[in-house]
Computed example of a mutant assay.
Amino acid sequence: MSYLVQLLVSLCITLALLIYSPPAVALAQTNNEMQMSAQEFFRAGVEQMQRQNYLEAVQDFSKAIDLNQNFSAAFSNRCLAYLQLGEYESAIEDCSQTVNLNPQNTEAFLNLGLAYYKLGNYQAAIANYHQVIKLNPTDFRAYYNRALAETDRQNYQDALADYNQTLNLIPVNETFAAAEVYNDRGTTKLILDDNLGAIADFDLAINLNQQDYRTYFNRACANQRISNYTAAIQDLTIALQLNPNYAEAYANRGVAYYKLGNEQLALLDLQKAANHFLLQQNITAYQQTLNLLKQLKTQATAIG
């Protein structure tokens, strides 16, 4: 049983999605007919981006670039479209061209960092976030994204420092974004075994956004670590109300019920967890949950 419990604790770390930068502003029109045509394609590309038609946006930005090889905004926006399509190498090429044409473009550096992050090149991602901060020391997105990269590099103290700076700079009206930051800072504290500090951050995140099932799950994990299984069950129940297919929440709640001596509910939740793991084709977790179920049933039979 201890092996699965350890596995489930490792599943508590749920990082938020990175913040995407908005499309760059269109260049001013000129009287040159070729430039006007390029800008018409550019505007069409921006409209496609707003409709989330990213492939069509790439095509329009490419036409704009064909007509104007120095169209920095077209490269920048095509980079963003490639990011949305998951074509990170192409995004790096376009954003690199953008900063060559406009070294002051913080959005391009931010997107470069995101593309490198998605490819697992955290050092390159951090270098680009450094550049954003150098150009604009108050851009909270760069600190936040750098914190995520530092977390993946297991530089947890550096990540905490960046999360703190993010919270100092984030606008007061960005409540959902602030909730993400508190959730991520909480998960980092959880990694560092600061369970009470993690719970405090998850409390703040939930106060700002009561609809994020991940935060309830993470707070439940922290409460399980300090053996507060009743509180963990309450949070896992809310998480399941928000996400009824959350296999990990069923599994963790089953473990919590077992710790409180409620074997019937424990077995019921673990069976639900196994069913959802199977539907999600997570065969490893499915088999481990079945093994735990078998072990608990054997113990219950022996006790009976």
Rank of each mutant, 00 (worst) to 15 (best):
I206H: 03
R141N: 00
L114H: 02
I233Y: 00
V25S: 04
N32V: 06
Q52K: 14
Q69D: 15
N291H: 05
N282V: 05
L190R: 08
L8F: 08
Q234H: 12
L265C: 04
Q211L: 12
A24K: 00
Y286S: 09
G186H: 07
L279Q: 11
P23Q: 04
Q123H: 09
T175M: 13
F217M: 06
L7I: 09
S72G: 12
Y246G: 08
K259H: 08
A57D: 12
I283D: 15
A28K: 13
L167K: 01
H276E: 14
A302D: 06
L55D: 13
Y54P: 01
G186F: 08
G197A: 04
Y258R: 15
I133L: 10
N275Q: 11
Y163S: 03
I303Y: 08
K272G: 00
L160F: 06
V58W: 02
Y144L: 02
E33K: 13
T289N: 02
Y144S: 00
L190C: 07
N195R: 15
A249Y: 01
A222W: 03
G197P: 00
A232E: 07
Y122E: 07
Q50Y: 03
F61T: 09
R219M: 13
L167V: 03
L242R: 12
P171V: 05
Q39N: 13
A200R: 02
N218S: 13
N111Q: 08
D235I: 05
F71Q: 05
E180N: 13
R146Y: 02
V9H: 04
R78T: 08
S76L: 10
A74I: 01
E40A: 01
L67M: 05
L160Q: 10
A149F: 14
N68D: 14
A266T: 15
N164Q: 13
A127T: 05
N275F: 02
A44V: 05
E89I: 11
S62E: 08
N77C: 11
L278N: 07
T187I: 05
N100W: 07
L119F: 06
Y143V: 01
N173M: 01
E56N: 13
L196Q: 15
I92A: 09
A44R: 08
Y258S: 14
F140K: 01
Y143K: 01
A251D: 06
Y156A: 13
A205K: 06
T151F: 10
L85K: 15
F41M: 11
T301L: 15
Q295V: 04
Q264R: 05
L7N: 09
E174P: 01
F277V: 02
A57Y: 06
Q29R: 14
M36N: 09
R253F: 04
S10I: 03
Q280A: 15
N68K: 08
Q211A: 10
L15V: 12
Y257K: 05
Y82E: 01
N31C: 05
L268V: 12
N218E: 11
N252Y: 10
G186C: 11
A91F: 12
A179Q: 04
A28S: 10
F277M: 03
I92P: 03
L15D: 12
L135A: 12
K134R: 12
E87L: 06
Q157R: 09
T166G: 02
A57L: 12
N183C: 11
Q287F: 04
L236G: 05
Q69R: 15
L17C: 14
Q154L: 09
D94C: 06
